[in-house]
Amino acid sequence: MVDENTPDNAPETEQAAIVQAGPVSSWLTENDFAHDGLEPDHLGIELIKVSPDFLIPLCTALYAYGFNYLQCQGAYDLGPGKELVSFYHLVKVTDNCDKPEEVRIKVFVPRDEPHIPSVYWIWKAADWQERESYDMYGIIYDGHPDLKRILMPEDWVGWPLRKDYVSPDFYELQDAY
């Protein structure tokens, strides 16, 4: 989207870089919460980028603003040597709401120090979801009450869904019978 204040003679790359602020981003800006607005996804859901340091204050504010349901928390890898991303899909659930308001928060962290504060204390649904992101990508959710592997064996080495992961030459089945 092109901002109406962008001059018509501005380079196309500059025009393409400007993202119209959505309603949640506008509310966060009005209340002095540090964040960056991203281009909405293919379904039109507003995307907000936040640094790990501001995740808890921002999520607490969004909870108070009415986003009372964490529909999904997950992670993905941008590629070898690039950042890891933890995302949170939040929904504002009300009694008379045919189309609930949705927003997705994204936190980008370096793969060598992937620390993000846990949102478990805001939305209990983050419990197993953060554990799965830890297990598959190695993102450490500081403050999580029971951050341990959930899918892989406890003694597994590495993070299987990272794009630079090298599979072991063998895997010994234990207690298979």
Rank of each mutant, 00 (worst) to 15 (best):
L161M: 15
D146N: 10
P145H: 02
W123I: 01
I139K: 04
G143N: 12
A126R: 05
I139H: 00
E132A: 04
P145T: 08
Y120L: 07
E132T: 05
A125H: 14
V119F: 03
D155E: 14
Y141T: 05
I122P: 07
Y120G: 05
P114C: 14
P160T: 14
I140E: 14
G138T: 11
Y141S: 10
D155L: 00
P160L: 11
H115T: 15
R131P: 01
H115S: 15
P114M: 08
R149W: 00
I139V: 07
Y141N: 11
S118Q: 00
Y141F: 14
M152Q: 10
M136A: 06
Q129A: 11
I140G: 09
M136D: 05
Y137W: 11
M152N: 09
W128D: 04
R131G: 01
Y137C: 04
P153S: 08
K124I: 05
G138A: 09
D127N: 07
I140C: 14
G158M: 05
S118R: 01
I150R: 12
I116C: 00
D142F: 00
L147Q: 10
I150L: 13
E130L: 06
M152G: 08
W121L: 15
K124S: 11
I116L: 02
I150K: 15
M136V: 01
W156G: 07
Q129C: 14
I140F: 07
A125Q: 13
I139S: 02
R131L: 02
V157A: 13
I140N: 13
P145S: 00
W159Y: 15
M152E: 09
E132H: 06
S133Y: 02
P117S: 04
D155Y: 03
A126E: 01
W123D: 02
I150C: 12
S133E: 04
E154F: 01
Q129E: 13
V157M: 12
D155N: 13
L147Y: 04
M152H: 07
Y137T: 12
A126S: 10
G138D: 08
G158I: 03
A126M: 10
P145E: 04
E132F: 00
P145V: 03
I150M: 11
W123A: 03
L151V: 15
L161R: 14
W123C: 04
K124Y: 02
W123Y: 12
M136R: 10
P114F: 01
M152C: 14
R149V: 02
P117D: 03
I116H: 00
D146K: 02
L147I: 06
Y137G: 09
P117C: 03
P153R: 10
W156L: 07
D135M: 02
